[in-house]
Design a protein around this nucleic acid. Structure first.
Lengths: 236, 236
DNA sequence: AGGCTAGGTGTACGCCGTACACCAGTCAAG
DNA sequence: CTTGACTGGTGTACGGCGTACACCTAGCCT
């Protein structure tokens, strides 16, 4: 009975447990150091045991993506603009919780069913708002990466070291001086917000503000097209 | 005069040659199958020889990025809108030539000098057009991934197999039937264009059109903000 | 009892990046 | 002319990776 107590000590190791442990591990140590061997060790199991539950590492990643995509808030009733706005912001929150997810989703050659479902329901919200399939089609392209909340800040200094989110406290403009000297325009932009005390944006750069700025820019434009009955058909 | 060409090395193997060969190899076989060993073989050299010219694989990737970013057309004179539009579309062409580049650039934790220079000159074009640093700052965030021309079409079926570009000929709506059944809105969008013969967009989905649609949506919104003297400062 | 099956194990293979010791040239200074 | 440092290509080797394959074991059905 001592022997079976030892094996009974750990949970049964289901596919779901494998995937969720992998998500936690990726959250904690980054996607690049998520290996089948590490994951197996976290589960107290030998590496090959995982292959009884996932076909290979690619399928593991797909499963992880499905799990985090499922964390996005379900569509809420209301007008299309509010609904989509809330949805996208919820997706963004998910991606901030799981910093590896955006790159993982992008690197997949084909979207997973959960991603497809998310996109589908977003299109559904547009259609429910009276969008033609034609306009809805183009709008989905226009929202593009924002549909999944990607911020994708190339010059986001916070991405190098710690977690993401607003560069809120401290870190006013931490470009290395030699970089600032060579790229004056970039330097000016990086420090712009901190110079003006009456700016809505605090010191440093508020990712959330920037994201909503771009999002609203797109949404307002989309609304305008919608109101004026825009179509990609030839004018005639 | 007798040159010592008789004993000249067959392969000079400079840092530049290493990087350019790596770019060609990545273009041909994809970034995931670019290894130091493959690259060395392509150069007719032993793997460790590369390390005399690049510190490690990360530095190799940085060097490759610098090379392809340098292919983006230099800024042209003219009004800011045209200048930025041309620049971004040029960047997009570069990314279509080097399909590995967008993911590679995104996965870097810190942008390379060439990327910084590209971003800087884009900001410069805005400033030259009379944008405040404040507005220019937010505009750069808004353009976001589009600054480097990322299309990032999650539901771009062409990405799974061949090269990208417009799904121009054939392939009207190649969603697998079981997928189409489960996601009716997606299916409707995917087939929308092919149903209407008088659409500007031909059969299938014209990536280029979609990209410019989104880009112009953003640019028009930005222009409107610019004209009305938008600022992120508190009103009043 | 006998065998089927699901699930965990152990070993092994071929990739990968790269540390480290080595060696063949070139070339400047003694 | 020697010498010794420096540059750049080589060979070997190590630890980590994904995973194929054979094996074992426990529970279940007949």
């Amino acid at each position: 009975m001592a022997e079976q107590a030892e094996t009974a000590r750990r949970a049964p190791l289901t596919r779901d447990r494998v995937l969720r442990t992998a998500v936690v591990l990726a959250d904690r140590t980054g996607i690049e150091s998520l290996s089948m061997r590490n994951l197996a060790q976290d589960l107290g199991v030998v590496p090959m045991a995982l292959y009884k539950h996932v076909a290979n590492k690619d399928e593991l990643l797909d499963g992880m993506i499905d799990i985090v995509v499922a964390e996005i808030d379900p569509p809420a009733p209301g007008d299309w603009k509010q609904a989509i706005r809330r949805r996208i912001l919820s997706a963004r929150q998910m991606l901030l919780r799981h910093p590896w997810a955006s790159l993982a989703i992008e690197s997949r050659t084909t979207p997973t069913p959960a991603v497809l479902a998310y996109l589908d329901s977003t299109v559904g919200a547009l259609r429910a708002g009276g969008f033609s399939t034609d306009l809805a089609h183009h709008v989905m392209h226009a929202l593009g990466s924002r549909v999944l909340g990607f911020s994708q800040e190339l010059f986001d200094t916070s991405r190098q070291a710690g977690r993401s989110g607003a560069t809120s406290a401290g870190t006013p403009a931490d470009l290395p001086p030699e970089v600032a000297a060579r790229f004056p325009h970039l330097a000016a932009i990086a420090t712009a917000a901190s110079h003006d005390d009456d700016s809505v944006v605090g010191p440093g750069c508020d990712d959330q503000f920037e994201f909503e700025f771009a999002l609203d820019l797109l949404l307002d434009g989309i609304e305008r097209l919608h109101r004026t009955g825009w179509t990609s058909h030839r004018t005639g």
